[in-house]
Design a protein around this nucleic acid. Structure first.
Length: 367
DNA sequence: AATCCGTGGGT
DNA sequence: TACCCAAGGAT
């Protein structure tokens, strides 16, 4: 690992900030440095691309313009607004933190990274980003960009997926932060990491900090950062039941409040490939899995949907979902975690998996 | 420390 | 197809 002297650090800061002043991106969350705006954007941007976030960010602020507005929201409304962004605990934690600040702290944000990190959903990265950008604290905000940029500049070969990475990079980056512009420094690093110093096909030669880039100077950019491989997703198979009445009402089922797609709504899912199961078998499993009971005598029609399946890849699971369509004469009573709503309902939070299933159903439905 | 938790885009 | 990547955090 390379250590810079004080003069080099000053030159690096001036070069990086000069470039940022001239070429930094004009993003919606950079219109001001309000902690609500900085925090919301940083949470949305976790593991998520800028172009995906922008429309969600704008819609969110139209819905809840202030932290006080958000603190008064229902969790169901928050999840509905978040639906499609993924990692849904982020949305639940946004609401929790808004309530803590509004109701327990009199609307006052902690102004240090250490204080911010106590709040739900705020870890080392978001704490550093909000503390530096909104409150001017000279702390690093170490995200994937910072890992990549400084691994190359300083030839840091610590595996960025290892437990030691946070400590090693924090020690390396902290001395480089300018006391007067920590927020701009951290944002400049992010812009650098998403323009010249990208993961794939970097343009190190034209980077404004090429002169400080040891990996580029030595022709070893492709060796940094060191990042161990992920393991591949586990394959799982399910069968979704499209349970409708003749007038187009369908059974919607809310997933448990913890775990994958927590609290979101889908058509009821049974484990395994149930394309060959009989109607009584399907209903037995439906009762066991979701406490939804209905008599097989009430089923007017039993149809498979399409010849294939819906596939959806999560971080750790690769799902294959088959669809069965059962038509009932009339709605039956449902437990608290299920509802009769139109097939194309607009009121509940649906994950992308459900949107894919609905698209597949609409394309393949028989009548 | 290792695992869980989404999604869309690129190659 | 099967990877990898993108402004991580909680348990």
């Amino acid at each position: 690992m390379i250590q810079w002297d004080a003069a080099t650090i000053k030159q690096f800061q001036d070069t990086l900030l000069g470039w940022y002043d001239a070429h930094g991106r004009a993003l919606p969350w950079r219109r001001d440095h309000a902690p609500y705006h900085v925090w919301l954007s940083e949470v949305m941007l976790q593991q998520t691309g800028v172009q995906t976030v922008i429309p969600y960010y704008e819609r969110w602020l139209a819905h809840w313009p202030t932290l006080t507005d958000l603190a008064a929201a229902d969790e169901a409304a928050v999840l509905k607004e978040w639906a499609g962004l993924g990692y849904y605990s982020r949305a639940r934690n946004l609401l929790k933190t808004a309530q803590i600040i509004t109701q327990e702290r009199g609307g006052q944000w902690p102004t240090t990274a250490a204080g911010l990190k106590q709040l739900p959903g705020i870890g080392d990265y978001v704490a550093g980003a909000v503390a530096s950008i909104a409150f001017g604290e000279p702390v690093p905000a170490i995200d994937g960009n910072a890992y990549r940029v400084f691994a190359r500049l300083l030839l840091i070969d610590t595996d960025i997926r290892s437990g030691a990475a946070q400590r090693v990079f924090r020690a390396a980056i902290t001395p480089l932060i300018p006391q007067d512009r920590p927020g701009d420094f951290n944002q400049a690093v992010m812009d650098l990491g998403s323009s010249y110093m990208t993961a794939k096909h970097p343009d190190s030669a034209h980077s404004p900090v090429a002169a400080f880039d040891a990996a580029y100077q030595q022709g070893v950019t492709d060796q940094y950062p060191v990042k161990s491989a992920k393991k591949k997703p586990v394959a799982k198979t399910y069968t979704a039941l499209v349970l409708t009445t003749p007038d187009g009402q369908a059974v919607w089922q809310q997933r448990p409040s913890r775990g994958l797609l927590a609290s979101l709504w889908t058509w009821p899912l049974l484990t395994g490939d149930q394309r060959a199961a009989t109607v009584p078998e399907l209903l037995t499993q439906l009762a066991a899995a979701h406490a939804i009971t209905m008599a097989s005598a009430a089923v007017l029609r039993d149809q498979s949907v399409g010849a294939g399946s819906v596939t959806h890849v999560f971080t750790h699971q690769h799902w294959t979902v088959y669809l069965r369509h059962l038509t009932l004469a009339a709605p039956t009573a449902l437990p608290a975690n299920a509802r009769w709503l139109p097939l194309a309902q607009q009121t509940l939070a649906e994950p992308t998996l459900q949107r894919k299933m609905a698209a597949y159903y609409n394309k393949n439905k028989t009548d």
